[in-house]
Design a protein around this nucleic acid. Structure first.
Lengths: 135, 135
DNA sequence: CATAAATCCTGTAGCTACTACAGGTTCAAG
DNA sequence: CTTGAACCTGTAGTAGCTACAGGATTTATG
């Protein structure tokens, strides 16, 4: 029976995970990804566990988690001692952050809208947007 | 008759504008704020025009404009040749960006909500959040 | 007027999350 | 065995600040 350790290069890992290959190196540097095995010549050799972990990281990033938050989540998963509650609490905390950001942006949006609509009603006088901000 | 050039220091400008005093120096460095006059000893001397400009910058920042966008807006205002249309177009473009961000964040929000609610229904099995992201 | 404390000066390094080189080595295909 | 692609390292750059260190100046107080 052969070993089923199929190693893949950083470039291939990048493709499979949809994470930039330089970013992979960066994640290793900051301790988010483990140091992989190396070939005789020093090239990194990855396996499916690396791929899984990297995809996890990418998905978390897509949900707006910071690298620090992801590091913590992975810390839980790594020890295997994570409780559902703990993960849920962190996710809820992050959800609150996101909701806060949405509120802020909506405020921005309505102010920008107001300024634009007032501008469209504007006469040849000074620009009401500039007035609003600069005056 | 006395000059009505009342100079203020960087610290005072920082207070009046609600912009960090180090940030003021930074804005000067990147060309967003002009080089102010200096005292005999080399301290920066600001006036009301600086204050006005700095408050404009702060307000734009609060509306989410990037420094590059603000630089452009100020460029228009500086030449005095800005047209209302031009300013409105830039503001509308920025509004589109903001609306896009809101959409993205709302998507995030609903995914996080889904994960959290599924988690709360979860049994003692593996954490559904981790499963969703890691599996 | 002297001194102490506050503020200012410059330049540089740090932060997040990457990305993009330069200059050299190794690997895989033909 | 050669060529070219991919890899290696370390460093510097991006945005938008913030925070020093180490020294000079200004302001307030006695």
């Amino acid at each position: 029976m052969g070993t089923n350790l199929k190693h893949i290069s950083r470039g291939v890992l990048a493709q499979k995970s949809a994470v930039n290959s330089e970013t992979i190196r960066y994640y290793e540097k900051i301790g988010l990804m483990p140091h992989p095995m190396r070939s005789g010549g020093g090239h990194r050799l990855y396996n499916d566990d690396h791929l899984k972990r990297l995809v996890f990281i990418r998905r978390c990033r897509e949900l707006g988690f910071s690298l620090e938050e992801i590091k913590n989540l992975l810390g839980l998963v790594d020890t295997g001692e994570y409780s559902c509650d703990e993960v849920r609490l962190r996710t809820e905390a992050h959800l609150k952050d996101v909701q806060h950001k949405v509120r802020d942006l909506k405020k921005m949006e309505s102010m920008l809208k107001d300024m634009v609509s007032e501008c469209q009603n504007g006469k040849l006088s000074n620009c009401p947007i500039v007035e609003a901000l600069y005056g």
